[in-house]
Design a protein around this nucleic acid. Structure first.
Lengths: 340, 340
DNA sequence: CTGAAAGCGCTAACAT
DNA sequence: ATGTTAGCGCTTTCAG
């Protein structure tokens, strides 16, 4: 009767360990979390007993007293997008290296859902990583007031962020296209609410102006392969000889559509992607794209957030910092001289 | 002095809500979690007050009393592998639909790390989803004794699992190759400890035997694009006219190597992948592959686990079930008639 | 139907 | 250096 059918057996607690060696629970707690606050022999005995009994700390109980959960939330607009997998990879490994768990929140591109989910999780999460957030500055400011937040690829006053300098990669792309003789390019924009898409278009426009070529923009488009077909058709209509896409997914989808319509890449149309996601190098033709250090951005963001969390502990002002990561153009075979 | 510098303001608790309308905390608790155990008017007042004060339940505190965390762990051997992206996508969305959070555990292909991480998290997790686990049957049995577990693509006595019937897809692939005139094929194996790789090779061998063609196997290889080059070279040495790979990553890496060595796909060599991951359709040439419903497997696995968890609540015996999901061959351009 | 009170496992003052 | 004690926020008997 003491062992229930279907239930995990009762976990061993700190008081089991304490009882087994005749010390107070607080001593066990200290031996485990602040080793230099107990004597060496005691520490050894506690550790041995804990090991022997198979003690594992109950993190809920710990959180309840400390107020910290050792959990970070990564908030992404669309878990379907391979871009975010590189990010998840980076944050996951760095979080785990820093002793934090990571939970994933998929907001499905909805600002409302994003706000609601964040609110709902706010007291089980030490801090939030917001990637390509669809929240506006006011909402972000309100959130950051109560929660440690780090933004990824989004700038907002007073909130720490890690930004990939994609505009610089975009400039390189324009230089590249101009050197190939292109005089009219089109930027195919991403989601209307995307801060990044704005930035990229601005970089394209400014570089084009500087070099004296024509740049226009079309969109918004959903940042997916599926949307690439419509984007391709719209691109063709502009008469441009080269196109730069908000991201690789759009570019890949567009290239497929170009092929269907008999438009040769790069002979008839040069195509530049953005991000350099998995697959960009083996699509046909291999995609010239702006390589973004996404995984690295994830690692840096975790480190910034962790630094903030620690600063919070010691009541220091968290650095309102911004990290900018370089981006560069990777030239493959989807771009070529104008007129082939 | 009442507002600390850098700290999120104290969250509103159940007793704030209770005090605000002059009821006991237990009443608030009931109104929130067992609505039919309070009178309608009380329920309404509680809900209104909670709404007004912005009350959000503290899930740690709740877990401490209930013993449930509403969190599921998805354990994968290598978060880098796009196969697991699809899985993560499926489990994430289904878990969230079922009211569970999901945390990701990356075991980096190490059985030791896998066991250690699972042990460490066991009392903050309601149940585990183990995908392509590297644990042996004994370890799995020991784990499943204390924790609800569902296996993905792995069979082990007495443990519920969701299996993709890849062998059937493999048979289809052999049929396909034989119909194209191939008489000698090679199966390029995955990791040595992979249960799936065993199954796939067996299916290849049996189908080949049945149809009277020669099948050999080489490996093990790491299931990555990088390992594909060595796999390609080893494949060439076998003299086979067609090769089937443990997964798409190996196949994609191998195709690249074939191209480098001037071996034309499919004229000189037919290539079959497995999984149909992101990119399989736009690699050059588009990859003939065994399409596995990975995302769907993730959803099913979550549902099985959740069913188990609920059964645990009511002390029912959890069904020791196994779900088998169909797999099929998707023919693209990487396979062709022997001799081109 | 509602309130009072105990306690989940742990940490953090406060004593000693 | 260690023990005692008081909670963290919530659910859950147990009374009424």
């Amino acid at each position: 009767v003491e062992q229930q059918k279907n239930t995990r057996r009762a976990a061993v607690t700190i008081s089991d360990v304490a009882a087994s060696i005749g010390v107070a629970t607080s001593t066990v707690s200290r031996a485990l979390t602040q080793p230099d606050r107990v004597s060496a022999p005691t520490r050894r005995r506690v550790l041995e007993a804990a090991q022997l009994l198979g003690y594992v700390a109950n993190s809920q109980a710990r959180s309840l007293t400390t107020g910290r959960t050792q959990t970070i939330a990564l908030v992404v607009p669309d878990i379907t997008n391979p871009f975010f997998f590189d990010l998840i990879r980076g944050t996951q490994s760095q979080a785990s290296a820093r002793g934090y768990r990571q939970v994933l929140i998929d907001t499905q591109e909805s600002p409302q859902l994003e706000a609601a989910q964040i609110a709902e999780m706010r007291n089980s999460i030490d801090g939030f990583l917001l990637s390509a957030t669809r929240l506006d500055d006011d909402a972000l400011a309100a959130l950051a007031e109560h929660q440690p937040v780090v933004l990824i690829n989004r700038e907002s006053p007073g909130i720490p962020s890690v930004i990939i300098d994609t505009p610089s990669g975009m400039s390189q792309a324009i230089d590249h296209l101009v050197s190939l003789g292109h005089a009219s390019v089109v930027y195919v924009g991403g989601p209307a609410t995307s801060w990044s898409s704005e930035q990229r278009w601005r970089a394209v426009r400014e570089s084009a102006d500087r070099l004296g070529i024509t740049a226009t923009t079309i969109g918004p488009f959903s940042p997916t392969i599926q949307a690439g077909a419509a984007a391709a058709d719209a691109t063709i209509r502009t008469g441009a000889t080269a196109c730069l896409f908000f991201n690789d997914l759009l570019a890949i989808g567009a290239m497929r559509r170009f092929a269907e319509r008999g438009i040769r890449v790069p002979q008839d149309m040069s195509v530049v992607g953005c991000d350099d996601i998995f697959g960009a190098d083996f699509v046909n033709p291999p995609l010239t794209t702006v390589t973004n250090p996404i995984e690295h951005a994830g690692r840096v963001a975790i480190d910034m957030l962790v630094a903030d969390l620690r600063a919070g502990d010691s009541a220091l002002t968290p650095g309102r910092t911004q990290h900018v990561l370089p981006s560069h153009l990777t030239i493959r075979q989807s771009t070529g001289a104008v007129g082939g």
